[in-house]
Design a binder for these strands. Structure first.
Lengths: 114, 114
DNA sequence: AATGTCCATCGTCGATCAACGATGAGAGGA
DNA sequence: TCCTCTCATCGTTGATCGACGATGGACATT
């Protein structure tokens, strides 16, 4: 599958949509959680990178950050746990992309502070 | 400077506006900092309380949260350090209010994630 | 002057974060 | 098969957070 690596639908959204189930979480707590996920410069960078390109392989992220691979993986894990990001396995690589509904939720909650 | 006493009971904005000097801080770092300030449910509650009422005495905040006074004071300190909130001494009390330009900045940065 | 109220700060303790190297699991390519 | 590449996870270390009680300072009232 040599064609798989650079081919797989240039701007493809690799990730299936997640319906973002929010169990009994108040929106205050949800805002706090999402804010916490964004509360680190490296994670802001990662998030922006994933937004700019529609999806992104983990290795590219590591390549652009002055951090060890394991550290980047940790940040990605935090972003995934927050729901802002999801990742799908694509062969030996892992493709990450933004969970847009969750990002929208964050934006709505922050915009609602007024 | 005459009546800066405790008579200012009404919805007075007790706080002078701060020009929010952001020296060499990238907007990614700024977003991370502001997000960190919001990244706790108690601080979200405090922020919303300060937004709802135009200003708020510290004691009222303590009265509405299930936390010790010292803990609330810590959260207020974090919010102040982030620039999202400012506090002015008004006699024996301390009046807190939201720094609207900074809140607006947070909203702009989050809304810019797209 | 003495007292009471309001709030910030200190010191502490357990929990979590942030970073790293090392190791391991999967998927291809040789 | 064996090896390489990619990524997640483990284990560790130092720093920071989050909570509390206790202390102390500034101010108003007595």
């Amino acid at each position: 599958m040599a064609t798989r690596k650079s081919k797989s639908k240039s701007k493809a959204k690799c990730c299936a949509e997640t319906p973002l189930n929010l169990d009994g979480v108040s929106d205050g707590e949800l805002l706090a959680r999402l804010a916490k996920a964004v509360a680190h410069p490296a994670r802001v960078t990662i998030l922006r990178m994933l937004i700019e390109r529609d999806s992104c392989v983990c290795g590219e992220i590591v390549g652009e950050l002055p951090l060890a691979q394991s550290t980047v993986s940790q940040h990605l894990k935090i972003l995934k746990e927050s729901g802002l990001v999801q990742g799908d396995i694509d062969g030996p690589k892992v493709c990450y992309c933004v969970n847009k509904p969750m990002l929208k939720m964050l934006q709505t909650l922050v915009a609602g502070l007024k």
